[in-house]
């Protein structure tokens, strides 16, 4: 899933890029309005994070341009403008959400996950990934959630990609490179430590006993495996 981030502040842009990539999104970044429009037309991202105050063409104008040709691609405004009128203008132009500066990483994630769910469940129904079971877990990739009985576990896009890959390859070992290629993308530099850390964090959330994992098992020297069943 590709996200276009248009933000003139380089640090915020880079920070958002990192947050999104860590979550499993591919990102396209633009430092001004013209670049953002060009990237949008060339790359057709799945959704767009737009700063309002940008040099050249501002966020409102970009939103207006995009909505002229495309009514479904979700647009999230990111802005320091917290006045009622700014929100109203943004939402009337067809934006889907509004993230106010200063924001926390978790807030950005929560909103981006909400938009991703909407992407899966509304606009692009044909793309909606199917639900599946792993051990006692019900995985709902379209909702970025897993359920164990009454308990709901939030998942990142990357988490669902890893789980989907392991599920698809049930019973077989999935090597680190394959996981990287599938879940991080070709552009990403394969780093075993990054992968191990991610799997470790994921286990903490989905395994009943992370020290003795039942869903994502380590195959030493080879990779990871899901044994099937459930």
């Amino acid at each position: 899933m590709r996200v276009l981030v248009a933000e003139d502040d380089a640090n915020i842009r880079a920070g958002l890029e990192e947050v999104l990539e860590r979550e499993g999104y591919e990102t396209l970044t633009a430092a001004d309005g013209a670049e953002a429009l060009e990237l949008y037309r060339r790359e057709s991202p799945d959704f767009i994070c737009l700063d309002i105050m940008m040099p050249g063409i501002d966020g409102y104008q970009i939103c207006r341009e995009i909505r002229r040709e495309d009514l479904t691609t979700p647009i999230i405004f990111i802005s320091a403008k917290s006045e009622e009128v700014d929100r109203v203008v943004g939402l009337e132009l067809g934006a889907d959400d509004f993230i106010l500066k200063p924001f926390g990483v978790n807030e950005v994630l929560a909103r981006i996950r909400a938009v991703t769910r909407r992407c899966y469940n509304q606009g692009r129904r044909e793309q909606r990934p199917e639900d599946f079971h792993m051990a006692d877990l019900d995985i709902v990739p379209a909702e970025l959630r897993a359920k164990r009985g009454e308990q709901t576990i939030d998942l990142s896009l990357r988490d669902t990609k890893i789980l989907t890959l392991l599920y698809r390859m049930s019973g077989r070992v999935v090597d680190r490179n394959s996981i990287f290629r599938e879940c991080w993308g070709l552009a990403h530099y394969a780093n075993s430590r990054t992968l191990d850390q991610h799997i470790s964090q994921l286990r903490k959330r989905i395994e009943l006993d992370p020290k003795n994992p039942q869903i994502i098992r380590t195959v030493h020297g080879a990779g990871y495996r899901y044994d099937g069943g459930g």
């Binding site: 502040d9 920070g15 947050v19 500066k101 200063p102 924001f103 926390g104």
Partner: peptide, 12 residues
Amino acid sequence: TPLTNIRMYAEL
């Protein structure tokens, strides 16, 4: 804007 950066990078 500066606060956004401080907060986001601190959290990262």
